[in-house]
Amino acid sequence: MPISDYYKKIRRKIGTDLIFMPSVAAIIRNDDNDILFQKPHDGEYWSLPAGAIEPGEAPAQALIREVWEETGLRVKPNKLLGVFGGESFRFTYPNGDQVEYSVFVFECNNIVSGELTPIDGESADLAFIKEESKPKLALPYPDFIFKKSASDNAYFQWENNWL
């Protein structure tokens, strides 16, 4: 589903002005350690399978739902890799809608079921790509979260800015 009824109601009230959007994103690996990337229909850049958290949803629930809607895969998140946001995570959609994402990025090494096929019509292309060949992404995720050897600790942006 490209935009939920909840966000449609907000957009009717404020137009294209900037809104905060709690979101989730998944780093999904296949058996060859390639990472799944999604090319949206309305974007020039690739992204991770991702989407907004809806009212009443926990971040992990939103992740499972969003990944299925965009990829046709059922996944089980196994680790929180980091939480990202701020000005560098602002994005303007082709229709002018402005958002500032706060993104929970999860690692999902377990594809439970499904076939790689878009369900909701948002994905123009889905591809497992080697880490070293990752495409240019719409949001500035740090490179280290794509490393298979990422730390066991979740990353929070304040770690480099405040301490």
Rank of each mutant, 00 (worst) to 15 (best):
M1E: 12
M1H: 11
P2A: 10
Y6R: 00
Y7V: 01
Y7L: 03
K8W: 08
K9Q: 10
K9R: 15
I10N: 00
I10G: 00
G15S: 07
L18T: 14
F20W: 03
F20I: 02
F20K: 10
M21I: 04
M21A: 09
M21W: 01
P22E: 13
S23Y: 08
V24K: 14
A25P: 05
A25Q: 08
A26L: 13
I27Q: 11
I27M: 11
N30K: 07
N30M: 08
N30V: 09
D34W: 12
D34C: 14
I35A: 13
L36K: 03
F37W: 00
Q38T: 10
K39N: 04
P40H: 11
D42S: 10
D42H: 12
E44A: 15
E44N: 15
S47A: 03
L48F: 06
P49G: 04
P49I: 09
G51Y: 04
I53E: 08
E54D: 10
E54T: 03
A58F: 15
P59S: 10
P59K: 10
A60M: 15
Q61M: 12
A62Y: 11
I64H: 00
R65E: 06
R65L: 03
V67P: 13
E69K: 08
E69D: 14
E70W: 02
E70P: 01
T71S: 12
G72I: 08
G72F: 05
R74Q: 12
R74T: 12
V75K: 00
K76T: 07
K76M: 13
K76C: 11
P77L: 03
P77C: 05
N78S: 06
K79D: 01
L81C: 11
L81D: 09
L81W: 12
G82V: 02
G82M: 02
V83N: 00
G85A: 03
G86P: 08
G86C: 09
S88L: 04
S88T: 05
F91D: 06
F91N: 05
F91S: 04
T92K: 03
P94Y: 14
G96T: 15
D97Y: 15
D97G: 12
D97K: 15
Q98W: 09
V99F: 01
V99T: 01
V99R: 00
E100P: 01
Y101R: 04
Y101A: 02
Y101P: 01
V103G: 00
V103M: 08
C108D: 06
C108L: 07
C108V: 04
N109W: 04
N109R: 10
N109E: 13
N110H: 05
I111D: 03
V112E: 08
S113H: 08
G114I: 08
E115C: 06
E115S: 14
T117C: 11
P118G: 13
I119P: 02
E122P: 00
S123Y: 06
A124E: 14
L126K: 10
F128L: 06
F128Q: 04
I129F: 12
E132I: 12
K134S: 09
P135Y: 12
L137M: 13
L139G: 02
P140V: 01
P140Y: 02
Y141I: 05
P142D: 07
P142A: 05
D143H: 06
F144H: 14
I145W: 07
F146V: 08
F146M: 10
A150D: 14
A150W: 12
A150V: 15
N153R: 09
A154W: 00
Y155H: 11
Y155P: 02
F156C: 07
Q157L: 13
W158Q: 14
E159L: 04
N160I: 13
N161G: 06
W162M: 09
